[in-house]
Design a binder for these strands. Structure first.
Lengths: 178, 178, 178, 178
DNA sequence: CATGAATGAGGGTTCATTCAT
DNA sequence: AATGAATGAACCCTCATTCAT
């Protein structure tokens, strides 16, 4: 039954998001998925690999940026505005996941390719590169990506009032001049 | 004996910084403090309260900003530069503690007054307030504090190359215009 | 398909010889036999009966003594020499099986007719009986069989240097006088 | 309480002797010792080390041969007779332990110094050496030790009727001439 | 005939914490 | 004040075996 695996992953995701890796128990996941606990271990080698599999898939689904493939052609201001606005939307819709990635990156429960740096920062760098290369502009991409990433981090870590968006214009200005 | 408690706190700090709250074991802490495990529980109600006590003290020591009491009188650019530079220095010297605060804030193992928001963000806001009130300037302090906080977050979460400092001037410019 | 059963038995034998009854897992056997684990249970009621079936067959093949049917006619010394030499050869070629029988006899994972006593000792007694009856000689067959069995046991249990064979003559002398 | 450890070892011994290493459960041992299961793990790192500790001590108590320290001065026949008779008595009184050592030696659950070879065979060799060196006699000690060991093995592995002792004299003859 | 899917029962081990001294 | 001794509760994981196709 294909459904079983899907149910497991769904249950696992819920519990992992809610409790984090260490405090999530295989028992609770199994219960939520309505399978026997042992069934988890037939599908996944152990808790860690269930975790990684679950996170891999949800990340792929959530942070997918392929729909922004074309925005690099826009002028710098539009490009940055679209990029940042979109990423802010995504992480605001998936705060729990974002927090999970941050916490588990710090605690080193995630393989390198699922850590914050790789999932968020590298993606930003890639998008920025496309843009600046396309427009034949010199730009310190690393710095820009860092600043945007810090921006996103503050959005989830600090009490959310969505206030930053209103001042995006000023912020973009610094990104264009740095 | 005062020494006993001091040794416990020292040991606890080492282990908590290294492993985080959940993966730190009272056994390891006791061993490092060279006391019997049970002694921890005579001094502290439980692991959680040992954690909070330990973190409270190290945070007070580490993030103390009283030596910056006077900088609010400086002009805006100097003030921001001093502020940011100093905070960057502090967190770069105490990356492990900073990461601990972030991760445990997310996992809700810290009481409110020890969470990232309170420890870092509120402090920034206070310092900014002093400055802008003293200079009779209007300013969106919340936004500024958020941006600086994001700045600091990116510094610990992302691979460190200390590159941001070189571009501080531009960054400060945006902070002044927001 | 006859092949399936054959593959199972082959796989089971390998794993049982290598790991013993308890540490052999049906999973590993199935893998080695290149069948689904559940298939084992269609052919055999349970792990125990697979074990017994496997061991029965390998024992029949290995310890078969029918080719020694005629040696009882030889004189006592020749007979004993041939008998002991041959049995030593057999167990040296099948040390793993011999050890398995010993260990599983002790642990009572084998039905009576597959235990060491039956498989080795009784066979020795039968062969001795044939000889002494044929030659109309009185002889304490039980004792002789025991001594030879002890001989064989020491060969597998103790670190092997094959040293005993060189001194077989003296040993046979005592067997003839008992 | 010193008693606790003693009770654990007693319980462990009973269960290990009865079930063998793999089939003994820490639960059953704890129950028999009337302690919580977890207490076992405070005293011993794991099941394996509890096993080894238990076996080490019982072996030291059981197979102690220090009271035979002086027999090497006897003439060869007396010496061998005393030696063999005594060892036979010991193993007949501790059949279960002897069987355990054999089975777990085969299954490699025992460290080298607790395996059959070391515990039984080496001891025999040492005693034989003392004798033959004392009497300035050349002798193939290895062979003799092997034969005696095989003798002892047959005594536990085969159905016991204690018949061998009656023929000890003949048996000793072969040992003296080999 | 063979198997993919699922599981009940249990196993060793860890952890924070309490009891008694 | 400090500790040695002991533990309840839980956790991850394994194994032989059954169910349904």
């Amino acid at each position: 039954m294909k459904q079983t695996e899907a149910r497991i992953i769904k249950g696992a995701l819920e519990v992992f998001l809610d409790k984090g890796f260490l405090q999530a128990t295989t028992q609770e996941i199994a219960k939520k998925a309505e399978v026997a606990e042992v069934t988890l271990f037939r599908k996944f080698k152990n808790k860690q690999s269930l975790f990684e599999f679950t996170i891999t898939h949800i990340i792929a689904d959530t942070f997918d940026a392929s729909h922004m493939a074309e925005i690099y052609k826009q002028d710098e201001h539009s490009f940055l505005k679209t990029l940042i606005t979109n990423r802010l939307e995504v992480i605001n819709e998936h705060q729990a996941l974002f927090k999970l990635i941050i916490a588990e990156s710090i605690r080193e429960h995630l393989p390198k390719d699922l850590q914050f740096t790789e999932v968020i920062y590298s993606q930003l760098k890639t998008l920025l590169e496309h843009h600046y290369i396309y427009h034949h502009k010199e730009a310190n991409i690393e710095i820009k990506a860092r600043l945007i990433a810090g921006f996103l981090l503050s959005e989830v870590i600090l009490p959310s009032k969505n206030p930053v968006l209103n001042h995006l214009t000023h912020y973009i200005k610094v990104l264009t001049t740095i």
